[in-house]
Design a protein around this nucleic acid. Sequence first.
DNA 1: TTATCTGCAAACGCTTTGCATCGGA
DNA 2: TCCGATGCAAAGCGTTTGCAGATAA
Lengths: 153, 153
Amino acid sequence: MADELADEVTERLRDAGLRATRPRLAVIQALRVLGGHQTADEVHAHLVKNDVLHSRTSVYNSLVALADAGLVRPADVGRGAMTYEEAGTWHHHFVCRRCGQVSDVSCVVGAKPCLTPREDVGVVDEAQVLFHGTCHRCLGADAASDDQAGDLR
Amino acid sequence: MADELADEVTERLRDAGLRATRPRLAVIQALRVLGGHQTADEVHAHLVKNDVLHSRTSVYNSLVALADAGLVRPADVGRGAMTYEEAGTWHHHFVCRRCGQVSDVSCVVGAKPCLTPREDVGVVDEAQVLFHGTCHRCLGADAASDDQAGDLR
DNA sequence: TTATCTGCAAACGCTTTGCATCGGA
DNA sequence: TCCGATGCAAAGCGTTTGCAGATAA
């Protein structure tokens, strides 16, 4: 079931001049299982739990290799550690200030620098948008606690 | 000459319920002298060089206080350390992949969430755009070294 | 006078590096 | 076979925390 993934990853790593090793395949499979926006540590924890891989260094190494091969995209959403996601469709991120949850947001234009700066700063090859705000769940929790709190505060 | 700054900072800190202390005034003055996009360490180095302040902790403390008072804005441009700039007009950032230089870029709309995500993820109060690419200087250097290199490589 | 702030020292979390060993092609 | 990858251990770097003494209001 995950063999097609392994085959594709193997091929794309080789295309990038990299070897298809056990840790690398394990890391990208973990990323697929866990879904987007995982930190290196979360990937590591998952692999340790499933007794697949125990070295933190290898997780870092593998993430770098997979990113080089264009299979994984690092995304800094400003929450301490770097997060990683499978490189599928290009999108932006919304981060809830309360709970820290990260959601994907479609980009305005389908192409990869989906925005162009007004100023002529040079050649732009990428534009990342990071939205901040309050997610629906936290807004709901707010409303609920407002009811509960009554006129306190 | 910098007294108006000191007075304004004092007032705005007090408005935020914070004290106007020597380190805080020193940090914002350093930020003004150095210009935008300084790391805590760069601010610290500047203040040490000018024999104004020697504690790294106080630089961090002050930056937090100034950010709370809305006088300073932290901007994560994805280069390891957090950078800080005086909170003036709202803008985005362009980071050169070669030299790491950061340039300011006007936002699309003057208001503060200058972009709206397509998806309804919740209440968005901020949108930061981070552009990556190659700045003019590095493009120029490239052209020059291409000439020099001739057919090497 | 007192709550706030400072600033040293130490801890902390994420990430990288050095290096001997291992293994994919 | 041999270069590239692994993975332990340790360092590195930016940042935060604990706390006793100092200070703005």
